[in-house]
Amino acid sequence: MDLPYAGIPYGPAPAWCFPLFECGLYLLFILCLVHAAGRGARNVLYILGGLAFGLLLEYMEVLMESYTYGRFWVMLGKAPMDIPLCIGVGWGIIMYTARLFTDRFGLGLLAAAALDTLLALNIDLGMDTVAYRTHMWHWNWVGTGLNPLTAQWFGIPYGNFIGWQTVVFCYSAFSRTFEKWLMRNKTGALKFTAIAVLALLSSLFVLYASEVYLFPFLNKYLGIKSVHRFYGISVILLGLVIVGWGKRKVAAENLPAITWMVPGWFHLFFTACFFILGFYKENTWMTAAACINLLIGVIIHLPGSFKSASQDSVSTAGKIHHTS
């Protein structure tokens, strides 16, 4: 059997892998959009802005030859510079549900944006090692002298995770900032549209400026490489959450089920693929990292899922009793 990429001992993914992942994202996007529609224009435009942002940044990364994509059902653009629609959808629903989760705790702007970012990163750490090995997307290590299965984070460049940190933090922080500035007097769909567009453009600018100017400068003149930036930024984000957590104000509203359904789907799908497709046999450290990351996701989201489910049951029972 011919292998798709040099140094990666895995053939094409099973026929069910790509369609199941893609359809799962589209279904979750519909559920998120329905939920957002019930909460008003701000939420709808936040998730649509996240979708647009995701597509634009993915196209930018493909143009910069950061990575290439496998073949999904719905591709936008012309090969080999095309991108899957479902990836933009994934960005939108991850950022939307992360914000739903953090809004529940009434955190300050920086702490909320930092927690949004860590929640998204928890998903990506479990996703990328599997997606890379199923050839959903591919980083090219040819000519680097590095092993494509062990380079940096088990074959995933640290720069990818820094991109996640930059994207989610900026979109979350800019959205919240522009909401405070523009929503002081009256609300309206036009203002929410302006907020989404401004947050998208500002975040893209920061991402582009960081990747093209800031990070190369840090590497060349200060010796701060991607691994240092990734762990340094992670520590800063965690510090922001810890400081902000003591000042949190828990909101009265319940956590909607969609806040755990989205991360739950990502964790379930990629953890299942990790073991079903035999990737766990490759590297003990990678398996340990995957299990620890999954455990962290469960610890974060499982209590909220039980609580929201039980509260929904009580609410439903109350409505039935009142009706009868």
Rank of each mutant, 00 (worst) to 15 (best):
Gly49Pro: 00
Leu63Ala: 12
Ser315Arg: 15
Trp265Met: 14
Val44Ser: 02
Phe279Leu: 05
Ile47Lys: 05
Val197Asn: 08
Glu253Gly: 10
Trp73Glu: 10
Cys86Tyr: 11
Val243Lys: 14
Val241Ser: 06
Leu20Tyr: 09
Ile296Ser: 01
His301Gln: 04
Asn254Ala: 15
Val227Gly: 08
Gly106Trp: 03
Trp73Ala: 14
Gly88His: 12
Leu255Cys: 09
Ile224Met: 07
Ile242His: 05
Val142Lys: 12
Leu222Trp: 11
Tyr46His: 12
Met95Asp: 04
Val34Phe: 10
Thr187Gly: 15
Gly126Tyr: 08
Ile320Tyr: 15
Gly40Glu: 10
Tyr132Arg: 14
Leu294Gln: 08
Asp124Ile: 03
Met60Asp: 12
Ser175His: 07
Ala15Glu: 14
Pro14Arg: 12
Leu28Pro: 11
Asn293Leu: 06
Val262Tyr: 05
Leu237Gly: 00
Leu85His: 10
Tyr221Met: 06
Val262Trp: 04
Ser202Ala: 15
Glu65Tyr: 13
Gly145Asp: 05
Phe18Gly: 01
Glu65Asn: 14
Thr134Tyr: 00
Leu118Tyr: 06
Leu3Cys: 13
Trp16Asp: 10
Ala309Cys: 11
Gly143Met: 06
Phe174Pro: 02
Ala98Val: 04
Gly143Leu: 02
Ser308Lys: 13
Leu27Ile: 15
Leu294Val: 12
Leu76Gly: 01
Ala289Thr: 11
Asn219Phe: 04
Phe53Tyr: 14
Trp141Asn: 11
Glu253Trp: 11
Met75Ala: 08
Val314Gly: 07
Ile292His: 01
Pro4Leu: 09
Arg184Tyr: 00
Ala272Phe: 15
Gly108Gln: 03
Leu107Gln: 04
Tyr10Asp: 05
Asn185Asp: 15
Thr177Asp: 00
Cys291Pro: 00
Leu27Gly: 15
Tyr208Thr: 14
His267Cys: 04
Arg99Trp: 01
Val314Glu: 11
Ala37Met: 13
Leu204Ser: 09
Cys291Val: 15
Leu110Gln: 03
Met64Ala: 15
Trp245Arg: 05
Val62Phe: 09
Pro12Val: 03
Ile195Thr: 03
Met286Tyr: 03
Gly70Cys: 09
Leu119Asp: 13
Trp265Ile: 08
Ile300Lys: 11
Ile195Pro: 04
Tyr5Val: 15
Phe275Asn: 09
Val298Trp: 12
Ile156Gly: 08
Leu31Gln: 11
Ser310Met: 14
Gly244Asn: 11
Leu218Pro: 05
His35Pro: 06
Ala114Glu: 02
His35Asp: 15
Ile276Lys: 12
Pro303Trp: 03
Ser305Trp: 08
Leu76Cys: 06
Val44Thr: 10
Phe105Asp: 09
Phe274Met: 04
Asn293Arg: 05
Glu65Leu: 13
Asp124His: 02
Ser210Asp: 04
Thr134Gln: 07
Ile299His: 03
Ala36Val: 06
Ile123Met: 14
Ile47Thr: 11
Cys32Ile: 04
Glu65Val: 08
Ala309Asp: 08
Leu218Tyr: 01
Phe154Trp: 05
Lys319Val: 12
Glu61Ala: 15
Gly40Gln: 02
Ile83Cys: 00
Asn160Ser: 08
Phe154Lys: 09
Leu222His: 08
Val44Cys: 13
Ser172Phe: 00
Leu302Arg: 03
Leu302Thr: 03
Lys319Pro: 05
His321Asn: 11
Glu179Asn: 00
Ala114Asp: 06
Tyr213Asn: 07
